[in-house]
Amino acid sequence: MRLSRVCSLAVLAAVAVASAQEPYPSRPITMVAPFPPGGIADLTARPVAAAMEKVLKNPVGVLNKTGAAGAVGMQFVATSKPDGYTLLLALSSISIIPEADKLFGRPPAFTVDQFAPIALISADPTILVVPADKPWKTAAEFVEDAKRRPGQISYSSSGVYGTLHMAMELLSHAAGIKLRHVPYAGGGPALTAVLGGHVDALASGPAVVLPHIKAGKLRALAGWGDKRVVALPEVPTFKELGFPDAEFYIWAGVFAPKGTPEPVLAKLRDALRAAVNDPDFKGAMEKIETPIVFKQGAEFARFFEADAGRLAEGVRKVGRIETK
């Protein structure tokens, strides 16, 4: 039994060596960003690709394959050849889309297990903001008021089952409150809605709302991270406030199609570790005010699984939305 396993491993290794006649990488690599240029996926993918190029000594191009909230690009990578030449830069939504497909009983565009996680690049906790002229000064007041008036306090989101929607849903469940959801087509319009006072609250990445907090238009109440946001040291986390289940990050990670050979994955992990320490990359992430959080291998797999579990639970709890 043990011998046969060793044998099969040896055979596999031989095959791998044989097929890997040409050392990886020997031609340009494509990194698919499933969102349009200018979005957080794109803005992360480009400096990552540039830094990887220096390590791998091969061009790494970013391809914006957009559509259907990222499903088009993710499906494209899920079904490409697992040779390490097509990579995916995905955001948290990678674990939401298949779950939503399941909810509606439609054939999934892709499933999470079609990907091999390589490394986490960044993770940004969302923060809860309200227009400055609203009465709530603290998250506790907000939650209390929401309990008193279930379904009366409204919030905007980047879209139904989108990341900003999920963050609010996780909070609602952790705090046992019911809020009124008004979805918008993207994070920009959702921010405009809260600035215009058309909704009462928004969960958002810190970088986007920071200028508006500084200008006194919005007030930050609490964050979804396990630590406070560096730029907003006075804003507590929901964890501190006693809602440990309200944990949510907008993260970006690099994936390869499942079945990519282990030596190639190892090489990519090394390249990414070097890339995140590249000064140019650090500078680029600083400018878009996104904290670098690097996790790889088993550590990333654990983070990914825990996050996917929370989000799947979130999607199931929201359930299908029936409108009146």
């Binding site: 920009g188 319009p189 200008a215 238009k217």
Partner: peptide, 24 residues
Amino acid sequence: VPSGPIPAVMLAAMMVHGVSPGPL
């Protein structure tokens, strides 16, 4: 704040260059 998809891309361009678009 973006008033459409094109200003949204331009706002992103500002952020890339370290300019925080906002009321200030």
